[in-house]
Nucleic acid binder design. Structure first.
Lengths: 199, 199
DNA sequence: GTCTATACGAAGATAGAC
DNA sequence: GTCTATCTTCGTATAGAC
């Protein structure tokens, strides 16, 4: 079963462009380099048989990645197997969010850097990353408040505040190459759990 | 007193480049445009009498702005006039941090976008924005814990967590053009105060 | 639909007069 | 130390053969 289904040229171009745009940025990547990485002759312009311009290619790349996120929208298995321990459930949820941010960072960074070429894809990404998350997580928190497991507060404000903290931590790590103030990931999670659970 | 002290050409170039790099990015700004904005002849290359290359100019621009931050390093007046109300003092401190982030955002954004051209300036900026802040703020929190005004926790972990939340909120606003989850600034501050004060 | 070859424009940088 | 003029390189995009 040497299943070497040959990848269509258009896909190879998208793969190559995604890789190069992430690593070197839009302006820092030439069409010739993309062609070479896609096993086309560098400088031949064969790319233009598949995309009408370099900018259209960028938009196609971003749109494809955003679609993939939407497909992969799972927050992992429900933490019911934590034996109902709120602190453990919270810690798992925060951990998953940080993992997700790490996984999505190349896309987030690309969209941020090249937003001038992108148009509506940017707001769309914002919706995917934040808005849809808030409602789901708020409901879970509200349920715990109702059950008396954590102190009662505004669930949506609390959710967004937590998401901001996790996002800010992640961006500081990526941006400055290390955790802000030397705070390790487990310490951040533990601090947030303490704050939310009101320990 | 028509004190029109004429600004040296080098300064005018730095001003022009700062403005254009922030608005259009490094690659999106041409040397000719910078010359025009600095009241030199566009395309003349007169800029090269003051800077040996476009990249050196970028580094000079960033370095000058980083210096200005360091000079302006004040967290505002001590909040002793709050009558010792911890909640008010905390809210003021968080508010000032958000104001500072807004004020510094053009520089943060520029360094982030063009870090490939910059070298050591980036880590330096990280130090200025985070590291030095953590120690000062941690001590203040520790004092309040000693006084029993807020629950006792690890002061440094708490400080960094709060700074992450404020930074994440700020970046989400700048990035997506609006507050994450519709959370207004005052709601974020109030939520953080509640969490820290253990209300 | 991929190739070779090239047109075309943009932009960084230099030369030399003043 | 600023100007006009120009060199040179590079990169997007197109033309036309196969």
């Amino acid at each position: 079963m040497t299943l070497t289904a040959k990848v269509p040229t258009r896909e190879r171009i998208l793969d190559a462009a995604w890789d190069l745009f992430v690593r070197r940025g839009y302006a820092g990547t030439t069409v010739a380099e993309i062609e070479a990485e896609a096993s086309l002759s560098a400088g031949s312009g064969s790319l233009y048989r598949h995309f009408s311009s370099k900018e259209e290619l960028l938009r196609a790349v971003v749109d494809r990645e955003v679609e993939r996120i939407d497909d992969a929208r799972d927050m992992g298995p429900e933490p019911s197997e934590t034996g109902g321990d709120v602190r453990v459930a919270l810690a798992l949820e925060f951990q998953r969010r940080l993992d997700n941010l790490r996984r999505l960072h190349p896309l987030i960074d690309l969209v941020r850097r090249e937003h001038e070429h992108l148009g509506p894809s940017q707001q769309h990404l914002g919706d995917l990353l934040v808005e849809k998350n808030v409602s789901v997580r708020s409901q879970r928190l509200a349920a715990w408040m109702d059950a008396g497991a954590i102190p009662r507060r505004d669930p949506e404000a609390l959710t967004t505040t937590i998401l901001s903290a996790l996002t800010g931590y992640h961006l500081a790590v990526e941006f400055f190459g290390g955790p802000p103030g030397g705070l390790r990931e487990q310490e951040l999670i533990s601090t947030l759990v303490d704050l939310v659970a009101g320990t």
